[in-house]
Design a protein around this nucleic acid. Sequence first.
RNA 1: GCGCCUGUAGCUCAAUUGGACAGAGCGUCAGCCUCCGGAGCUGAAGGCUGUGGGUUCGAUCCCCGCCAGGCGCACCA
Length: 571
Amino acid sequence: MLGEIVADGLRAAFRAAFPDCGLDFASVRAAATQNPEFGDYQCNDCMTLARALKAAPRKIAAAVVGAGRFPECVDKAWVAGAGFINLKLKDDWLAAHVAGLAGDPRLGAPAAGTGKRIVMDYGGPNITKPLHIGHLRSPNIGSALDNMFRLLGYEVVSDSHLGDWGTQFGVTIMGYRHFGDKAAMEARPMEELERVYVRSYEKAKADPAWMDLCRRELVKLQAGDAANLALWKEFVELTRREVDRVYGRLGFRFDLVRGESFYHEMLQATVDRLVSEGIARESEGAIVAFLEEEKLPPAIVRKSDGGFNYATTDIATILHRVEEFDPEQIIYVHDERQQLHFRQVFAIARRLGVTAGLRHVWFGLMRLPEATFSTREGNVVRLEALLDEAERRALALVAASSRGFAEDAQREIARQVGIGAVKYADLSQNPQSLVTFTWEKALALEGNSGPYLQYARARIASVLDKHAERFPGRDPEAFPIVTSEAVERDLLVRLARFPETVAQAACGGKPSQLADYLYDLAQTYSTFYQNVPFLKSPDGIREARVRMCGITARVLERGLELLGIAAPKRL
RNA sequence: GCGCCUGUAGCUCAAUUGGACAGAGCGUCAGCCUCCGGAGCUGAAGGCUGUGGGUUCGAUCCCCGCCAGGCGCACCA
């Protein structure tokens, strides 16, 4: 990666300047500059090293610049400000480097994950509940990370963890039996199941006896009761169909969809093991793991009614995944409310000897401007309604652009644009912040939005076509990249940073960094496109520019693909 | 009460994990179709980064106090 190439050169320069100081300068880094005035990369380490080297930062920087035989990629290096070292890359080296990336199917992404396996765990939707907009974030963020890890060479196993085995089933079954409406169940089963769930839940809150009955239904299911099992199967089937349909529209795909029920036969053994290893013991009728050493509150692994809960399932899941996949890490993409839960579960897994990395990549709750929404308050926006509206607005735009598309082509483009807008709106935000849902933001079609990126990509396709049409036989790939305008160089620098951006975004669990990068790239491209002539330029210059267009298209396309967003050639 | 998180332009969000003058979009205002797609481009206005201290060459970022909001804290998941 570019940053690493520069950093290696810097470290060598430090060692050359201070051969006998006993430091290896491994901490020295090259940071991308914010401001082109400071070159392409900057080194901030002279200030930090001032104490160890017993010299003023600017003197250190001057010594490094003076002594340093920088690698061939560096055009010039100079000292600035409090002791920064600024580095500017050679134009022709940069051009060749970008040409090299473009020729690589992975666009220069490092293969850091080769031979390693990651299990991704998505917060699954719950049985018998329609999906609302809060169900977007986990698979959306998770899939983007998944794609990035795959590009980095990891083998990824993604698993959508369907909540199909908890008390809510008891609540639903009681509601279904006492308040269910046959006709409604046949016409709109998911809505009806949600309705009876809400009603039964209300009753359970007010009436402990009812709650108790709900729990008993769950225990009956878990004990294999035939009637409950049959109903449960029906509910699971309905839920899966709903999830497949809606997530399918969003392009989410999982290697595995294992509900909690998949693990239910392992739960007793898991609890037994926890008890026999002294991790959990009986307390107030329940079996509880006490985690004082980790300074965490106790975690119940078996309820006093004999039922198991979420913690038990998650522990069993970890043990099973370690056995089946032997992953380097398991990444959970769940919302912020689960932080304590996962800390407890991870602590227990550690005590059981699990050595795989366990990481909770949490994200902030989605809320409405007025309030946090909840199924029980009926204060929700259905995910499907959002997708419908997104496609509707995009279709209006596509139809108005009058590019002469046939009707189904319009609809397909509108689908890609609308869904892309929704996904991008979510991914472009730092996952770890509250997301206030507004239609305006979720459906933005201009400015910092998915469609802006798609638009930039589509315009490039036109440029490439026009060039091929008017200048047949002049393959841009056969011409060297040369730059004369400042914006061309800006574009090259950005293209060269694709690999490190992907690596950072994946490791940091922040697809938003990739989204930011792509937006910045598209903006730079648009400036280039709008202010520099391509087809009217002289021979050679023209092909170099068209070639840069093509490389930009490739990076935009691949970047959007990583975010799970379609990049149509025409829209 | 204890713990986790958030507070940045009118609004929605960034800020390369402690770096240089805090940047974008939307909205507002003023411009740009001789040209490859105007879902675009160029420019302007807009900030005591919630608040008070501290740490250091340097703080939106780290530490402490306060204010405001969100979330969690044995038998929901």
